[in-house]
């Protein structure tokens, strides 16, 4: 089992083209020959940047829950709706499936994402050696599901666009929607900043040895073909 970094190689973060780097070039990498993206073996400042975005996301989640995400006006009577309030309204309407979807997207997913990214970051900082495969899967799930929280913002936007019926009913977006959108965007950036390769890096076999690729290729794993998509 050899990683690209152990062989003195780096895969372009954009196009995947393999480039051979000297020890000095690992510190200050050149651009990719094919696509001109700045090369890096690991995302620079990955853990710090990921923590920073995550903190911003948690901070934005507080106003997202305190301030109304929309204001409903029926026959001149205004009523602010918070995130959790929207779930209760749907539940009382007996739309259980949609209520659960909204609850998952606006409460469960953001909170689980805070916890998951924190756990992954701590596991990198503490150099956990166990369950690397499971942590990689956790990372993939976090990355995939985070965007779906944006559904709440779009629901507010669509309702505000549709319900403009003169004096009968009107729905307006509230400042909480911006805060919630910020939470989703910040946590997405947090997951994008996190480099999953750090989950697999052993401190003992770090980068730097610029081996001869012709000699290396014999020791390299052959990819497994999988018929099932």
């Amino acid at each position: 089992m050899l990683t690209a970094a152990q062989c003195g190689l780096v895969a372009c973060p954009a196009c995947g083209t393999i480039t051979r780097l000297t020890v000095e070039q690992f510190q200050n990498p050149p651009k990719c020959q094919l696509c001109f993206a700045r090369l890096h073996s690991r995302k620079p400042m990955s853990v710090q940047r990921s923590w920073a975005w995550l903190t911003a996301g948690v901070l934005a989640y507080l106003p997202a829950n305190i301030f109304p995400i929309m204001i409903t006006t029926v026959f001149g009577k205004s009523e602010p709706n918070t995130i959790i309030g929207g779930f209760f309204v749907l539940w009382e309407m007996k739309s259980y499936l949609i209520a659960i979807v909204v609850f998952l997207a606006s409460v469960v997913v953001p909170v689980l994402k805070f916890l998951a990214v924190s756990y992954l970051l701590i596991s990198i900082q503490r150099r956990f050696q166990h369950s690397r495969y499971d942590r990689t899967r956790l990372f993939r799930m976090t990355e995939f599901i985070g965007r779906w929280s944006m559904i709440d913002v779009f629901v507010v936007a669509i309702l505000a666009a549709l319900v403009q019926i003169g004096s009968i009913a009107q729905i307006d977006p509230g400042i909480g929607a911006t805060a919630f959108g910020a939470t989703v965007i910040f946590t997405m950036l947090s997951a994008l900043a996190l480099d999953p390769r750090l989950l697999w890096d052993d401190p003992s076999t770090a980068t730097g040895v610029s081996a001869d690729p012709t000699a290396v290729s014999g020791a390299v794993q052959v990819a497994t073909a999988d018929r099932s998509l």
Partner: peptide, 24 residues
Amino acid sequence: SLVACHECDLLHRKVEIELGAVAR
């Protein structure tokens, strides 16, 4: 002829795979 895993950086030698297959 090499490809590095974009998630864990493991080096692989590219091999021909069947139509419709995924190399993992």
